[in-house]
């Protein structure tokens, strides 16, 4: 049965068919359609062009479009697969798919690695780890002395850098996460399982059966 509602609906420039995205991600077609509702909201919050700009991303994350945050920047850059400065709908869904509770754990581990490999060198270096700790402290009320920061970074590095070559590669990262599974807890958003409840309007009009 066709749907009279979706005919003539204006789609955003990077729009991709929910059936295609559902086939490539852990989302059902209904969930992709619900994500489109969320995407439309986020991508029109400042500039109504159907693309998520960094300011819109920051506004949604922090309620502040001008807030700068190293980790939010990294997330944005990883979502922006085409590297054109904006997040399109397909990029949004595929990237969020990694955060789905049913996504393969290997994908979550790999995504976290890319997130922390700040300079995209294929490994996490000690300087990068320290830079991230400092960025975290900068955004929180936590105050630690330089000595304590060094101790935390050194200790973590000695545990994760099994080969002792001064950098954490993907293999070492995988091993480290398997011993410390809480490290990728933030790579799962339980909310994604309820996305159709949060954004039901389009789902009710969906033309495709899951």
């Amino acid at each position: 049965m066709g749907c009279f509602c979706s005919k003539g609906v204006k789609r955003t420039p990077g729009y991709e068919e929910p059936t295609v995205l559902a086939a490539e991600t852990p989302f059902t077609v209904s969930e992709v359609e619900a994500l489109y509702e969320l995407f439309k909201k986020l991508s029109s919050s400042i500039i109504d062009d159907g693309l998520i700009h960094k300011e819109e991303f920051n506004l949604a994350l922090f309620r502040n479009r001008n807030k700068r945050n190293l980790f939010a920047d990294r997330i944005f850059d990883l979502f922006d697969v085409k590297r054109n400065g904006v997040i399109e709908f397909g990029e949004f869904v595929r990237s969020l798919g990694v955060f789905h509770p049913n996504a393969p754990i290997e994908d979550k581990i790999a995504f976290a690695f890319r997130l922390y490999d700040l300079r995209n060198t294929g490994s996490i270096e000690q300087e990068e780890l320290k830079e991230m700790v400092l960025a975290l402290l900068h955004e929180s009320d936590l105050v630690l002395s330089e000595d304590v920061i060094e101790t935390i970074v050194d200790k973590t590095f000695s545990q994760a850098d099994a080969k002792g070559d001064g950098k954490i590669d993907q293999e070492e990262w995988k091993e480290f996460v398997s011993k410390n599974p809480s490290l990728i807890r933030n790579m799962t958003l339980p909310y994604l399982k309820d996305i159709t409840l949060a954004f039901p309007s389009f789902v009710l009009r969906s033309e495709v059966e899951d």
Partner: peptide
Amino acid sequence: VAPVTMNAFELISTSQGLNLSSLFEK
């Protein structure tokens, strides 16, 4: 937990910038 005993990655993972659940708040 005293911060000095924390794993640096564990500390980092608490960043608000990594908490994407905020995207879904209405």
